[in-house]
Computed example of a mutant assay.
Amino acid sequence: MDIENNFIGDFLNDLAYITDNESSSESSNEEEDEAYAKQVRTYRRSKLIPFYNTRKDIFTYFEEEKLIKTFRFDRASIEIILSLIVHLLPKRKTKAKRNLEPIDMLLVTLQFYATGTFQSVVGNVLRYSQSSVCRSISIISLALAMISKKKIAFPADLLTLKRDFYEIARMAGVVGFIDGTHIRIVRPQNHEKNYVNRKNYHSLNVQAICDANHRFLSVCATKPGSCHDSTIFKGSIIGKKFESGQFGEPFLLGDSGYSNTTFLLTPYSNPIQPYEVRFNRSHKSTRCTIERAFGVLKKRFNLLHGEIRMSPTKASWITVACCVLHNIAIDRKMPLDDPELDEIDDEVAHCHPAQSVSDV
């Protein structure tokens, strides 16, 4: 009997020991599980680093070819553009951790110009809110427009302009071709009827003068679509300079929408004489430069090819800013591989070949 009691006692002691080990093992497993879950949470948090913490390395996300396709400029050119306007950008004093740096605002704006898509889409690509994109576009566009006098201007020496135009169609004394193009805008809230052009949509009538290399020498982007080309030129600063003789004897070429003057020559309306026909032929050949300039501008910055969904004032800033960037792109020899440009080249190719106006 004692042996049985001892056996039962030993069994109970072993059972208690096993139970204690199991409970301690379960407790240990729970601690391990909790520690593992904590590690998982820590790892996940490490993967949730805000994108704005890595914005300074945004160039590492794009290869050189992709960078040019997305922003229309290479890294060196973007840095040059930033250096031209950084002193004009406002300095915002805020405690927010998601402050946009000047380079961020410039890249956002360049992509908006290049794609012409909705601001929210641009924000989704670069991880910015729509309000931040809108603010960046306004700030950068105004800054670029403010430096337009330095980047869009007639050179001090007009001899190079004359020589380049003379090589096109043997027209001596030409320093530029003037024309207008309509930039579609969203329906404005104020003076809505003034912005309806002859094609019955809202626009800005942008007047520009270009040289033989498609660089813009003068841009006026403040007039509504209903304004006539000749009216814009007469009231513009550049028009008054030519009228007052500040440029001397050189003259501009314009289409039949302008009045023929001593400083602006237009084609003959009904050419009969051989010299009139030859003049019109050379005039048309020279006109191809401004047509291609507008075509390249709108293809490089697709926003101008579509509709600018902003107020007329901001649309004017954007238009001038794109013209400034257009000149910088030409100076920097930025490539523009766009199949649609072949259509423009075909139009230029259909122009009459160069022929001397003095030939009989």
Rank of each mutant, 00 (worst) to 15 (best):
I8S: 08
G9W: 14
I18F: 12
D20A: 14
E22K: 14
S28A: 15
A35V: 01
K38H: 09
R44F: 04
S46E: 12
S46M: 12
P50M: 11
T54P: 12
Y61G: 12
E63N: 15
F71N: 00
I78N: 11
I80K: 15
V86W: 04
L88T: 09
T94H: 10
T94P: 07
N99E: 15
M105W: 04
L110M: 08
L110V: 00
L110A: 08
Y113I: 05
S120A: 08
N124H: 10
S131P: 01
S136Y: 05
L142I: 00
M146A: 14
I147T: 03
K150F: 13
A156M: 13
T160I: 13
T160H: 11
E167T: 04
A172L: 12
G173C: 03
G176Y: 00
I178N: 05
P188V: 02
Y195C: 07
R198E: 01
N200C: 14
N205Y: 02
V206T: 09
V206Q: 09
V219F: 02
C220S: 15
C220W: 08
C227V: 04
D229S: 07
T231Q: 09
I232N: 01
K240D: 05
K241P: 00
F242V: 06
E243G: 06
G245V: 01
Q246K: 11
Q246A: 13
L252S: 05
D255N: 04
G257L: 07
Y258S: 04
Y258R: 04
N260C: 10
T262W: 04
L265V: 05
I272Y: 09
P274G: 05
V277F: 13
V277Y: 14
N280R: 08
H283D: 08
S285M: 06
R292L: 02
K298S: 06
K298A: 07
L303T: 03
L304V: 00
M310S: 12
P312S: 06
W317E: 09
A321P: 04
V324M: 04
V324C: 02
L325M: 06
I330C: 10
D331I: 01
D342M: 12
D345I: 02
P353F: 11
A354M: 09
A354V: 11
Q355C: 12
